[in-house]
Design a protein around this nucleic acid. Structure first.
Ligand SMILES: [Mn+2]
Ligand SMILES: [Mn+2]
Ligand SMILES: [Mn+2]
Ligand SMILES: [Mn+2]
Lengths: 219, 219
DNA sequence: TATATTTTTTAGATTTGTCTAAAAATAAAT
DNA sequence: ATTTATTTTTAGACAAATCTAAAAAATATA
């Protein structure tokens, strides 16, 4: 079944609000979508008719199983595109969300499947959020701060916790990006700084603060 | 200025129809857009108000300079995405058009600029059509059929004339794709067949018919 | 030139998604 | 237990894009 861009935005935002509280209420959804409660109520009825929503007047609402599957698929597309924008096109994290907000609605199945393969089936988006697979399974990803990685280990950057332009500037300077390979050379106890080797660049040291914000895949 | 997806589809199709006849008429545009003439008339008025269209009742219409610029930008996005889908995601030509039809409406400037760079500023889309640059300049591309390339020359595939599944099957067999490097080894006068070397694969021979349908960049 | 045909436009209705203002239900406070 | 405040829903209107049926203009034909 195919849904309009508007419907998809409603579905996705209901999904996200459900991660915090089981039942979602009209006002908070209206706030997320920058729309008015009255508009939300209208759409709730439509989604209920399409069997995407469990909804009782005045009592709040939640996605049905079907609605949940649709939502996860949208989230998958959104995060795959975000990953693409950062790792392939060289965007910075703070810029990709709004673009992915549009790309996520291009819903050709084969496109997403091929994009996923092209990106090597990434499991985490640039903001550290898991990317659901083609079956809707959401990977439980083991991420570890570089500050906690054992010496001599080689790891791959999965995400960065702090998303400020300030840390971005620093990471660019170190040539660290999502997907970058890093080897932990040595940890210095005096200030918690760590010597690392980024890709093929000469070894360098990073502060403990930076290290704590860089997350890597870890099984 | 920003335009709705519907407006963009109208603008782009008017542009394409203008390549064949200076003035465009209501019926043919309606046909292209799979819509009814009455709907077209409505939109014509809107586009005229926005200074995108020169339109006189009953006399046909054409894009203004402004409208032309908008159209070329949409065409640019469409063809860049088509190129991406074929060369990066491994789509076949006959599948990419409808997907690009959606992607073209994601109009973030920086996205297109970065995509263009990522693709290495391609000049021809997978169907052999020129890709306008960021300033709206449409490159006049010198393409040459492989059948006409001098022996010993190394060339790069720009497009394929025939778009049937039959030739596709054959080209896949030869590992020939958009962007593939080909060296012309020897031409055989008896049947016009040509021995070529595709990338790093062992040399092989292709028929004259195939050769005539493969186009390469040529300055 | 008068008549018939085709093309284009108008008139009026419909669907989707939105809004404001007012009413109804629920929750909180006295 | 009332009163007050908040949340949610309804009623009615509106903009964008579409449609059908009918009118008007332009073309083609006799
Ligand atoms: Mn969105
Ligand atoms: Mn994200
Ligand atoms: Mn389109
Ligand atoms: Mn094309």
């Amino acid at each position: 079944m195919n849904f309009s861009i508007t419907e998809e935005n409603y579905i996705k935002n209901i999904y996200h609000l459900q991660q915090q509280s089981e039942l979602v209420n009209t006002n908070s959804l209206a706030y997320e979508l920058h729309t008015k409660p009255a508009s939300v109520t209208d759409m709730l009825k439509k989604l209920q008719i399409k069997n995407l929503l469990d909804y009782e007047k005045y009592k709040g609402f939640r996605l049905t199983n079907k609605g949940n599957k649709v939502a996860i698929n949208i989230v998958r597309r959104h995060r795959l595109w975000e990953f693409f924008l950062v790792t392939k096109l060289g965007f910075e994290w703070d810029k990709v969300h709004s673009i992915a907000e549009e790309l996520e609605h291009v819903s050709n199945q084969e496109l997403i499947q091929k994009l996923d393969r092209f990106l090597n089936h990434p499991q985490i988006d640039p903001h550290g959020d898991p990317i659901p697979d083609g079956n809707g399974k959401i990977p439980i990803i083991h991420q570890l701060s570089i500050a906690d990685v054992a010496e001599k280990k080689k790891v791959m950057v999965s995400s960065v916790a702090n998303q400020s332009p300030a840390i971005l500037e620093l990471l660019n300077h170190y040539h660290i990006n999502i997907g970058t390979e890093i080897k932990i050379n040595q940890r210095f106890s005096f200030d918690g700084s760590i010597e690392i080797k980024v890709g093929k660049y000469a070894a360098c040291t990073i502060s403990e603060l930076v290290a704590k914000n860089i997350f890597v895949y870890h099984d």
